[in-house]
Simulated scan of single mutants.
Amino acid sequence: MRLRGFALLALMSLFSACKGEDVGVHFFAEGQPKALSEWRVLKVDGGRLSLNEGVVPYDLNTPLFSDYAHKLRTIWMPKGKSASYAAQNSFAFPVGTIISKTFYYPLPGDGQWDGKSVARIAANNDLQGESLDLSKVRLIETRLLVRREAGWEAMPYVWNEAQTEATLRRAGELISLELVDSDGGREVANYQVPDQNQCASCHATDNKTRALHPIGPKARNLNRDFAYAAGNENQLAHLSRVGYLVGAPAPERAPRNADWQNAAHEKLEDRARAYLDVNCGHCHSPTGPAITSGMWLDASITDRLKLGFCKQPVAAGKGTGNRLYDIAPGQADASVLMFRMDSDDPSVMMPELGRSVVHREGVELIRQWIDAQKGACDT
C-alpha cells in the first residue's frame, strides 16, 4: 500500500509538472512550428484573445501604418533574462526573446463578419484587461520575431476563419478586405501578409550585415504610458520593474517621439518627424537599404539636405512624378516625397511594402509639414 501511495504521488507530481509546462510560453530554439498556438504566447479562450503569463503588451507613440490595421504588440523573455537599454537603437534582447505583433481590424456596423468588411478606424488600444474581445474584431495575422542563437528570425502566421488558430505562411498570403468608413464609404484593401524574405526588407536595418533586428522597441517609441490591467504606467518604467529591461534612465530623461495624431499638444514638426521616422527611417537611414537614395528620414537626422530638402532624387524613375526635389519647401505638391506617399501604384508608392491603400491622414500630416517649411530651392 505504501509503494502504491508513493507511485500515485509521483504520478500526480509528474502530471502537475507537465500541466505547468503546457500553460507556459514555449520558446523553440530551432525549427518553425506550423501553429501559432505551439508557442503559447497568445491564447484564445471564451471568445477572447489574451496573453499568456509573462507576456507584456506594449504600444508605440507613433505606429507604422499597415492598411489601417490595429496591432497588439507583445514581448516575452525567459525567466531571469533582460534586454539592455539603448538610447537610440533597438534594445539588445537576450536569446529566447519572442516579440509578437497581431494585426486585426474592428468590425463595422453591427459587428457581423461578412468575409471582407472591416472598419477604417484610427488605431488605438482596444485591449480590455489585456485581452481582445473577438466578437468586436477580426484577427488577420500574427508575426513573430524570435531571438535565437544565430540571430533574429521572422515567422508570419495567418488566422483561420473560425478565429481559433493561426497557421504559418512562409510564402505569405494576399487577403482581400474592404475598408468601411463611419459614413459608409468603402475601399478595397489587398492586405499583404509578407513572406519570410520580405520581412528582411524592413527588419534588415543594416545594409551591410542584412541581419534582422526589431524596429519598434526603441526608447523613443516606448516612452509613453500604457493601460495595463493593473493600471497606467510608463512602458520603460514597467519593463524595468518587471525585469525585462536594465539600464534605462527615468522616463523624463529618455528620448521620446511625438504622437503623430496629437495636434493639440504636439508640434507639427515633431509629429511629422515621428511619422517619417517610424514609417520610413528604418530603411531611409545612414545604414539602411535606402542609403543610396541619400534621403535619410530617421529621427537622428538634422541636416536638411539629407532629409530631402532641395535634394534631387536618385534613380527614382517613374517615382519622381516629374518633381525636381524630394522635398520642395512650402510646396508639398511639387515634392517627390508627397507624390510617392499619395500613390497606391506599386511602381511608385512609398513605403514599397506594408500597404495597398493610401494613408489619408498620414499624407495630410506630411503635406501640412512640407507646406509650412520656409526657403526656396533656387536660392
Rank of each mutant, 00 (worst) to 15 (best):
D133I: 02
D133C: 01
S135F: 02
V137C: 08
V137Y: 01
L139S: 05
L139E: 06
I140K: 12
T142C: 07
T142P: 07
L144P: 04
L145Q: 06
V146L: 14
V146E: 02
R147E: 14
R148K: 10
E149Q: 11
E149I: 15
V158I: 06
V158N: 04
N160T: 08
E161R: 12
T164Y: 08
E165N: 14
E165T: 11
L168E: 15
L168P: 14
A171L: 09
G172N: 02
G172D: 00
E173I: 06
E173T: 05
L174Y: 06
S176T: 15
E178Y: 04
E178S: 08
E178M: 06
L179W: 06
L179K: 02
D183H: 03
D183Q: 09
G185F: 00
V188T: 10
A189K: 04
N190Y: 09
N190A: 11
Y191D: 07
D195M: 09
Q196W: 03
N197V: 15
C199L: 10
S201T: 10
T205I: 15
T205C: 13
N207I: 12
K208L: 15
K208C: 09
T209I: 00
A211M: 01
L212M: 09
I215F: 12
G216H: 09
K218T: 15
A219S: 14
A219N: 10
R220Y: 06
N221R: 11
R224A: 10
D225S: 11
F226M: 08
F226V: 05
A229R: 09
A230I: 08
G231Q: 12
G231N: 08
N232W: 08
E233V: 04
Q235E: 12
Q235R: 10
Q235N: 03
L236K: 07
L236E: 00
L236M: 06
A237L: 09
H238E: 04
H238L: 03
L239G: 02
L239W: 08
S240I: 02
V242E: 01
G243A: 10
Y244K: 11
L245P: 01
V246K: 15
A248W: 10
A250I: 09
A254W: 08
